[in-house]
Computed example of a mutant assay.
Amino acid sequence: MPSARTIRLSGRTRKTVLLLHIVSAAAWFGIDLALGISLVTAMVTSDLRTAGVALQAVDMFAVWPMFAASLLCLTTGVVLGLSSKYGLIRFTWVTVKLIVNVGMSTLIYVALRPGIGEAATLGDRMLAGEPRPCPPTCSGR
Rank of each mutant, 00 (worst) to 15 (best):
L107P: 10
D59H: 14
F67T: 11
I99V: 15
A34P: 07
L127E: 04
P114A: 04
S139C: 09
L35M: 02
A34D: 08
G129D: 07
A68L: 13
A27P: 02
S105R: 02
R8E: 15
K85L: 03
A51K: 00
G123Y: 11
R14Y: 12
D59Y: 13
S46E: 15
G129Y: 04
N101A: 07
G87T: 05
T75M: 11
T75S: 14
Y109M: 08
L48Y: 10
L20T: 14
W64I: 10
G103T: 13
R141I: 04
T13V: 14
T41W: 06
V94W: 03
V17R: 03
A69Q: 09
M66P: 05
I37V: 15
N101V: 07
P136H: 10
G87L: 02
R5A: 12
S24R: 00
G77Y: 00
R49L: 04
T137S: 14
M60L: 12
T41A: 10
L48M: 09
A54Y: 03
I116R: 01
R5D: 15
A62M: 06
G87K: 02
T121F: 03
D59L: 07
S84A: 06
A26Y: 03
D32A: 13
I116V: 14
E118D: 14
A68E: 10
E118Q: 13
G103V: 08
L127S: 01
L33R: 12
T95H: 09
S10F: 08
A42G: 05
G87V: 00
